[in-house]
Design a protein around this nucleic acid. Structure first.
Lengths: 231, 231
DNA sequence: CGAAGTACGTACCAGCGGTATGTCGGATAC
DNA sequence: GTATCCGACATACCGCTGGTACGTACTTCG
């Protein structure tokens, strides 16, 4: 692959066709992301997408196997992009507890923008199955949470098994998602975000308190989990 | 059955027509609930519903304004029914901490049955808006969580404002929903449920520890929420 | 230059949610 | 009893949507 015309200036190693192809594919994803974010999956027609991208359904079905496949491409990109943003913010902190707090704040910022909320949190589980939804989350945003939880809990010199760590991460992730939606739809998002940070911070402080006083997991694993235990 | 009078035996004050009407309406909701739970909202056609209920679309559109309205009726019933079950289980306990644990267990039991999971958690937010979703949750399942959180935190002799309490409840509710889904789809649901109970129990124990040592909210509301605070 | 294949455009279809209209039987007034 | 009315459906139909089959022009390669 070389010579004469096929090369494109900016993109080495790519032919014109490949470049054009990539361009239209990207245009489709771009337009779809906007429409999905604004009107939801069901509220967005393929006609609207292809018209927005100034192509036809033939082009769409050449690049994607269908509407759902296009949504998955959009979903994946939004997910990865958001995870990157959060991860980037996390690098500035080293202390695990502060890192957790910072991660929460970054997440709330991402969620408040709407695209992630609508595409990933709201439509994601319904359009894909929960399994596929989870599968993707597992290696992006959720992975960040796992990392933070691991660092935080290991700071307490604990060694809990992987399943338990995943459970903690799931719980925190769910809490953050729900909190994110409530923050985004609150009348005063700033104040709501502040409250969420306080509440989560309080939970973390509680864990830290247990760590400090040397309580370990087995103590509360009785099942009843009643700290004021009588019997 | 009996006479040629309009009255129906079991239902005093109701005419035959009203009785028949209520019956078909209920049949529609029943069938729709099953199909929505099995194949999701988008995967269920009105033809399948009316065929299952042995009526026609005319009947459906006589009772409901459309597919979404029918879904909302199903959603509401599932929601209320589930909330009732949980609330019933809660009556047996008085101690707020044990009540919290018991509530969690009941919730996990409900979620594992699938109908609530699919209709309320998965399709609910996508089909209705988040606003409408929240609106309904606000006065059923979520209300239970609020009540428990209130009782639990008040047991610590705190007086946190209503907004903060709602925030805590949101966080716990989100955590429970996510945990519920992960439990339901786990390879070993029993073990997964156990882990969730342990993890949540641990968080509760953390709160209790803070309460015991007299820490109040303001102490951690600094924003950083870093218990090992240095600066 | 010609063969081949990619990257689309065009035309079309089945199924879906939704609507307009017809119809029949129970309820009601006399 | 019977005339009338109206609620509770059934039937037929429509526009739109996702999806498919097929045609075609432009590139790329030999």
């Amino acid at each position: 692959m070389s010579k004469l015309v096929p090369k494109v200036p900016g993109v080495p190693g790519a032919t014109r066709r490949a470049s054009y192809s990539a361009s239209t594919k990207r245009a489709l994803i771009d337009v779809a992301e906007g429409l999905f974010a604004d009107h939801g999956y069901a509220g967005t027609s393929l006609d609207a997408i292809v018209s927005g991208a100034r192509v036809t359904k033939g082009a769409l079905y050449h690049h994607f196997s269908g509407k759902q496949a296009l949504f998955e491409a959009v979903f994946e990109r939004v997910e990865i992009e958001s995870a990157k943003r959060i991860q980037k913010a996390l690098r500035s902190e080293k202390d695990p507890w502060r890192k957790a707090s910072l991660g929460l704040r970054s997440f709330l910022a991402v969620v408040r923008e709407g695209t992630y909320r609508r595409i990933v949190i709201q439509d994601g589980p319904a359009v894909r199955g929960y399994e596929r939804y989870r599968e993707q989350e597992e290696r992006s945003t959720f992975a960040n949470v796992v990392e933070i939880v691991r660092a935080t809990l290991e700071a307490g010199a604990w060694d809990l098994d992987e399943d338990m760590l995943q459970t903690f991460a799931r719980i925190f992730f769910g809490a953050m998602s729900a909190a994110g939606e409530s923050v985004a739809t609150a009348v005063d998002p700033e104040a709501a975000a502040q409250r969420v940070e306080s509440a989560v911070g309080f939970l973390l402080a509680g864990i830290q308190a247990l760590v400090d006083q040397g309580t370990d997991l087995e103590t509360v694993i009785t099942g009843a989990a009643a700290p004021g235990d009588e019997a």
